[in-house]
């Protein structure tokens, strides 16, 4: 019964948005509303590592996804790496700080207290993660069960989004359809990879290393990774083998 309710709520939202079948942002938006969260993020394994963000919603969602990419650790990484849920009731606790020295404190600083991360499991392999962040600790008893249902819905959406024949010749069909056009996170995120491509030429390194340099720059200068990427693409920030120059 509950599973049917979740699916119906997602489909209603998608219909109101003119989408059928639902896209990943419809799953995340329904989730953030129905469980009273401050952020919901979905990510997948990508060529750049275990955590390639796909969608982030809620007041803290985008910042949390970006933070995890920047510091390279957090519940999303861990749930995909271990193929099992990661449930942290108190991000401010010493145990959480020890687990993720960079992520935990910064996430608490973004106003989150509790996180449940669920692997998107196909057979025995986690292809991605769904994370739910809450601002306060007292959760409903159904939070865990709901999280599992939304993780299932997210996986279903991703699998329906595969268009095996798409090769990207048509920008609207690159072999995968995740979110609707106009999704603020999905629209801007690709710039991070474009910037990595540009920096790889500037530094004469592989895109993966360029990506690491971008993340390091963002972290060291306490800037948002998307902001750093935007400046690279607009050519107001270039990297040189010795130092980054404005």
């Amino acid at each position: 019964m509950r599973a049917a309710d979740v699916q119906a709520a997602i489909e209603n939202l998608a219909r109101a948005d003119g989408a059928s079948p639902p896209l990943i942002n419809h799953v995340c938006l329904t989730c953030v509303q129905s469980v009273g969260a401050v952020g919901v993020c979905t990510s997948v394994r990508g060529p750049t590592g275990l955590y390639e963000p796909l969608c982030a919603v809620g007041p803290a969602g985008e910042a949390l996804a970006e933070l995890q990419v920047t510091v390279g650790e957090g519940p999303g990484w861990e749930t995909v790496d271990g193929d099992r849920p990661v449930l942290i009731r108190d991000l401010d606790a010493v145990s959480a700080q020890r687990r993720w020295p960079l992520f935990a404190a910064a996430a608490a600083g973004l106003g989150t207290a509790t996180v449940f991360a669920f692997p998107l499991l196909v057979g025995v392999v986690a292809v991605g993660a769904l994370e739910i962040y809450w601002a306060r600790r007292p959760l409903s008893n159904t939070a865990f069960a709901d999280g599992l249902l939304f993780a299932d819905a997210a996986l279903l959406t991703l699998m329906t989004g595969i268009t095996p024949d798409g090769d990207g010749a048509d920008p609207a069909d690159d072999g995968f359809r995740a979110g609707g056009p106009g999704d603020p996170f999905l629209d801007r995120w690709p710039q991070v990879h474009q910037a990595a491509g540009m920096v790889s030429v500037q530094l004469q390194v592989e895109p993966a290393e360029a990506y690491a340099r971008l993340r390091a720059h963002a972290y060291a200068n306490d800037q948002s990774l998307r902001e750093v990427a935007r400046r690279v693409v607009e050519r107001t920030l270039t990297f040189s083998p010795d130092r980054d120059s404005e």
Partner: peptide, 20 residues
């Protein structure tokens, strides 16, 4: 799924390489 997502990222990286 992984193939589709990898292509998507590589296309973005390639845009950057070519632009630069």
């Amino acid at each position: 799924l992984q193939g589709a997502l990898n292509s998507r990222t590589v296309i973005e990286q390639a845009k950057g390489v070519l632009a630069e």
